[in-house]
């Protein structure tokens, strides 16, 4: 990828400088490490170029397609990308995440993938109502739709069938887990849990992006193990693992996020952990093993 300044070992690739990215750059500076900011919108990669010195790229690109192809292109050029292209691919696609979790034997809601909206109605008969339909790619709870009954599902599938992109017609449906008014976000960096927060909201979707409030708590050893296993399963160095507790006490993995947004988490954790600093510390450890 092109850059306008002298290459250093660390690069942060992004197109939006959110509070998280600013915290990360500040953390690099506090540790005396130079991190070059590269705007992914101006980046391109020449396949036949000579390999530059190995660099560690923190991929903070907010768009999934751009993040995935950036990771692939940078890895092809010899860079270490965190999270890797493989992790970005699995985490960025809800079906691939579900498959990985299931293969690893980790508890996750019953899920089906239907290749047409019509087939989704049959799949929903198997899953049962109430259920949830989610876009395969996307975040912040956007377009995640509750299906309380078949009548609602038929209407929603009609809308999905009318969407122009063929990929939109591949339908991911999942059982709705009866849960308290909260879910759990755990941040895992380098195989270690940095903490856990409850996310509570007035809506059934408890995303911080939808106004959910966060509160730190001490996770059980089982939750900690589950979060670490989930991050490992998708090969994510840095992961935001979402867990939900069912009414009967089972804890299941809902999703694993590769581009963790940690402002809400950091607010809730206060002085207990500095997420940005732990991420930078992890990158410095990676650099010691590969770039010295």
């Amino acid at each position: 990828m092109t850059s306008s300044t002298r290459p250093g070992p660390f690069v942060m690739l992004a197109s939006r400088m959110r509070a998280d990215e600013k915290r990360l750059l500040d953390a690099f500076e506090r540790r005396g490490a130079h991190c070059e900011y590269v705007d992914s919108r101006a980046s391109w990669s020449l396949l036949h170029a000579q390999r530059p010195p190995r660099r560690i790229v923190l991929n903070r690109e907010i768009g999934h397609a751009r993040a995935l192809y950036a990771a692939r292109a940078l890895e092809a050029a010899g860079a270490i990308v965190v999270n890797s292209a493989a992790a970005t691919e699995v985490c960025g696609d809800k079906w691939q995440t579900s498959v990985a979790l299931r293969r690893a034997g980790l508890p996750t809601p019953r899920t089906a993938l239907a290749l047409t909206p019509e087939a989704a109605l049959d799949a929903l008969e198997e899953i049962g109502y109430p259920a949830v339909v989610k876009p395969l790619v996307g975040s912040w709870g956007r377009l995640v739709t509750l299906l309380p009954d078949r009548r609602t599902a038929e209407t929603v599938m009609e809308y999905i069938a009318a969407l122009p992109a063929p990929q939109s017609h591949i339908v991911y449906v999942q059982e709705l887990i009866a849960k308290p008014d909260r879910d759990i976000r755990m941040v895992v960096v380098g195989g270690e849990v940095l903490g856990a927060t409850y996310r509570r909201g007035s809506q059934w979707r408890t995303n911080v992006a939808r106004g959910a409030t966060t509160e730190a708590f001490t996770p059980s050893p089982g939750m900690t193990e589950l979060a670490v296993m989930a991050a490992k399963t998708v090969a994510a160095d840095i992961a935001g693992v979402d867990l939900i507790e069912s009414d009967d006490g089972e804890v299941v993995v809902l999703e694993v996020n590769h581009g963790v947004e940690f402002s809400g988490f950091q607010r809730a954790m206060g002085d207990r952990v500095d997420v940005a600093d732990r991420i930078v510390e992890h990158l410095m450890t990676r650099s010691e093993s590969c770039c010295e």
């Binding site: 197109s15 876009p135 996307g138 975040s139 912040w140 956007r142 590769h258």
Partner: peptide, 22 residues
Amino acid sequence: ELISVDPVELVLAPEIEEDWGE
């Protein structure tokens, strides 16, 4: 969106796209 700090230069920020998020 701030596209330059010195001198300060602002442009309309891009619209949120479908695949944006975590």
